[in-house]
Design a protein around this nucleic acid. Structure first.
Lengths: 217, 217
DNA sequence: ATTACTACGATCCGAGTAA
DNA sequence: TTTACTCGGATCGTAGTAA
């Protein structure tokens, strides 16, 4: 019995070894020891599931992993990493960048504000600190923090979605949280941090400075 | 369709590779969204395949992963790491720090110098640029560069060991290499960079500035 | 409470084969 | 050469249930 994971991992390996993204179902079937027909069907299923995009002809199949496909593998990687290595990532560093973030808009909404106060224990300053981080480090870091779900709401015909928040300690001084809107599916290089105070002011930071977040709990 | 990998990973997460732990088939069935009966059968199969040892009673199942079970997960982990790090990291940034490095001493040795010229294609300036980097980023970065081994030698009863060098491009302008003595076993936060010119002068850098290295090949 | 057997419908695999 | 369809046999998943 072959799984999506097996096939996707093999595709990712093929994709890396050669720079070409062309494979044949026969080649894959040999390296995975299943039939050509099964591979053909599996690739169709993976495409339907949105994990790859695919273009087949009588000369083979060209493909690439979608963002969701990479994310799928990355999640497995992080779980394995947490299980197989004793040291887990409970801190992350990042560079402060200027914000064109949507976060400020969110924290300005009264309804979110009340939720933040109730669930995180503080009323956030009406702005966010934007931070440039390594994507893989971020994924590892977040996987070790207990996520707090901030409920969405509806107001004047617009729907405001759920926000995932991750409590952190900032530069070993201040309490705060990383916030990530639920509907954001792509992985991020920039995250937004909220806190009860104006962080750039309180910590005397300028763009380009590095700050450290430590996961709480 | 649930795979051995899914179940084994969940088991490993449950006990975090401690020696023994107790789970219930009902609990596992909920977190993996399959039936209790399927989990029961899967655990029996995993035991027959030699991936876990298992002891069941009316109070639950105590189990542990066998060596083969851990190996199974570890192989997946390594494949994922190779695939995911290769696609993500071929550059690294770091801050220039003042050097108390041993590198300057090395590049001053005639024997090393000749090796550098022969194998890297340039004769290094007799000094190194010291750079503060994130250890994990460095490990990922270096794993993607083809290492060039600089041979050691003996001179007046002292042994000079091998040096590992990693060709890089500096700030998209200059050729150079990271050098790491072979006998250094601990992971490093500071690496030394060599180049055919005095880097701080040529690039007009001062301590605290950030530079970017891009892996070659 | 549990685990795990039986039975059977659902799903998967792959040989044959069309395009 | 390919990919990918059909379909029969094999395997999987789960409801019911015994222990």
């Amino acid at each position: 019995m072959i799984s999506d994971f097996d096939v996707l991992l093999k595709l990712a390996e093929e994709n890396n070894l050669k720079n070409k993204n062309t494979v044949t179902t026969i080649g894959l079937s040999k390296s995975l020891t299943v039939s050509q027909q099964t591979i053909s069907r599996k690739l169709i299923e993976l495409e339907k599931a949105g994990l790859i995009v695919r273009n087949s002809s009588y000369r083979g199949i060209t493909f690439s992993l979608t963002e969701d496909g990479t994310k799928f593998l990355n999640e497995k990687f992080i779980k394995l990493r947490n299980v197989l290595t004793k040291t887990t990532r409970n801190s992350i560093e990042g560079e402060i960048v200027s914000g064109l973030g949507e976060g400020k808009y969110y924290v300005s909404q009264k309804e979110y504000m009340l939720e933040f106060k109730k669930k995180l224990g503080f009323e956030p300053y009406a702005g966010t600190l934007n931070m440039n981080v390594n994507e893989m480090e971020l994924a590892e870091f977040l996987s070790n923090i207990q996520m707090v779900v901030i409920n969405g709401f509806k107001k004047s015909e617009r729907t405001y979605g759920e926000i995932y928040s991750y409590p952190v300690r900032i530069n070993k001084e201040l309490e705060g949280a990383i916030i990530i809107p639920k509907r954001t599916s792509h992985s991020r290089k920039i995250v937004e941090v909220i806190a009860p105070v104006f962080l750039r002011g309180t910590l005397k930071l300028t763009f380009g400075d590095t700050i450290e977040l430590i996961g709480k709990k």
